[in-house]
C-alpha cells in the first residue's frame, strides 16, 4: 500500500516538474505577450496542482497536507486574477495581440463569431 502511494506521488511530482519546465520553455518560445500568458498559465494550474498533489500523497494526513491545500487554493484563486489584470493592463496601454487572422481585431465582433452565437 505504501509502495503504491510512493509510486503514485513519484509519478505526480515528476509529471508536475516536467509540466513546469514545458511552461517555462513555452514562455521563452512564444512569439508575443498574450501567447506567453497561455504558457505561464500551464505552470500556474496543472504543473502546480500535480506537484502539490504528489507532495500531499507523500505527507499523509497531517498538518502539512492542510498547508499544501491552502497553497493550492491560493494559487487557484489568485493566478487568474493576476493574469487577467496583466492582460487588461497590457491592452489598456495599447499592446495589441498578434493574431492569425488579422481582419478580426476584436474591437468589433467578427462575423464568424456572430454567426455562431445566433445558432444557439
Amino acid at each position: 500500500m505504501t509502495d503504491a502511494l510512493d509510486l503514485g506521488s513519484w509519478i505526480l511530482i515528476i509529471a508536475g516538474s516536467i509540466l513546469c519546465m514545458i511552461g517555462a520553455l513555452g514562455l521563452l518560445r512564444m512569439p508575443d505577450l498574450f501567447t506567453r500568458m497561455h504558457a505561464a498559465s500551464l505552470v500556474d494550474t496543472l504543473g502546480a496542482a500535480l506537484l502539490l498533489l504528489g507532495m500531499t500523497l507523500q505527507a499523509g494526513f497531517t498538518l502539512v497536507t492542510a498547508k499544501l491545500l491552502v497553497i493550492g487554493l491560493l494559487l487557484f484563486f489568485t493566478s487568474p486574477t493576476a493574469t487577467h489584470a496583466l492582460a487588461r493592463a497590457a491592452r489598456a496601454r495599447g499592446v495589441e495581440p498578434l493574431l492569425a487572422d488579422q481582419s478580426a481585431t476584436g474591437r468589433a465582433p467578427s462575423k464568424r463569431v456572430e454567426g455562431k452565437q445566433e445558432q444557439q
Binding site: L25, R29, M30, D32, T35, L42, A104, V113
Partner: peptide, 19 residues
C-alpha cells in the same frame, strides 16, 4: 493540448480574439 503545442517544433498556434 497546450503542452503538446509548445513542444511541437513548428509551434502551430493561431491566436484568436473572440467575444
Amino acid at each position: 493540448q497546450v503542452s503538446k503545442i509548445i513542444l511541437h517544433p513548428r509551434l502551430p498556434i493561431s491566436p484568436t480574439l473572440i467575444r
